[in-house]
Simulated scan of single mutants.
Amino acid sequence: MDCNQYIWKSLEDEDSIYQHINERYSLMNDNSDIINQDLGIIDDKTESITIEIDFQKETNKSDKKKKKVTKSLSNYTIELKQSLTSLKSNVNGNSTTGFVVWQSTRFFLNWLLNHNGLSFLDWNNKQYSFIELGTGVNCSNSIILSNYSKDYFISTDQKGILNKLEENSRNNLNEIQIYNKTCKYLSETQIKDGNVQTKEKFFISKSLKKNEFLLDLSYQNLFHYEIEHLDWCDNITYDSFIICHGTMIKAIDSKLVVLAVDVIYNEFLIMPFLKTLKKLLSFKPSSEALVVLQLRDESIILDFLFEALELGIYVQTIDDAGSELIIGCSRHAIYKLSLIHPL
């Protein structure tokens, strides 16, 4: 199979949205014997979670006569700590679902790496940088996609979740190739004296206190891995986020992707999320968002799609193009949102 196994389908009006929802929920019903019938928590009995993703990675090997494309088995192993106690509590009235690890992120990453999602989205060309909304304690997207990002990956969530997210991120940095390559030999003296020769960008994370002395270098020489506070219901946190990172986002020529995975599960979240999303999309022209949702309550998904259109956001969904269903026989949908009409 290749990336032609998927198509973009525009959801331009109520009729196309209803048709899409009817098709997706009908497919879920037809495939109910192979789809988990639960809310989507990976494990609600342990504080420690391991996410392992094996995938076939194409590599080019050349000799004097011809260039060969071979496939090697790679593996990501992400060790995560979650907080079941915090999930069941009410922390300052804020959402607590981000304290545990959900299946949607694992589904999404498996689709990207093992079912040609990277090729379909063109992310394997490393021309994109990412801001993730509602990351939760699960750093898997930031860790794995940092290997496919051009200039930065910024994870965001409510303040109470950030400590656990930082801990998980710090414990999994070894899975980021650029971190491993630059930190083997990196020293402040070498950098200041110009004694380091490398084609790789230098890894820096102010949030995790990694190589902060590199801030004096130009943006083009750095890969930024950051974790920030951004509450959709608090405009002050958005303003602070832009003050911290807006100059870098505007200065760097890579295309911005706003990523959100399983962040819409009740009607009260929809409008704050979409307004924050629209502000980010407006901040940098030609940016786009990829939103992965677990299909639970049908009415919530309908409201999300309708309200996106009302705000002037164009919506597309990814459908399977052939008879072999990857997305269609899952409990998930993948949407692309943008302020520019899709061609």
Rank of each mutant, 00 (worst) to 15 (best):
M1C: 08
Y6F: 12
Y6E: 05
W8R: 11
D15N: 10
D33I: 07
N36Q: 06
D44Y: 08
E47L: 01
S48Y: 12
F55A: 06
Q56E: 14
E58M: 07
E58D: 07
K61C: 13
D63T: 11
K68I: 08
T77L: 09
K81Q: 11
S86Q: 03
V101P: 00
S104H: 01
L113H: 09
N114G: 08
N124M: 12
F130T: 05
V137Y: 07
C139I: 10
S142Q: 15
I143D: 04
Y148E: 05
S149Y: 08
D151W: 12
G160E: 03
N180K: 14
T182V: 04
C183D: 05
K192R: 10
K199L: 02
F203Y: 15
L217N: 03
Y219P: 02
H224F: 07
I227L: 13
T237M: 08
I252M: 10
K255H: 08
V257S: 03
K279G: 15
L290T: 13
S299P: 14
I301Y: 12
I301D: 04
F304G: 05
L311W: 06
G312N: 12
T317M: 03
I326A: 00
G328N: 01
S330V: 01
H332I: 01
H332S: 02
I340N: 15
P342V: 13
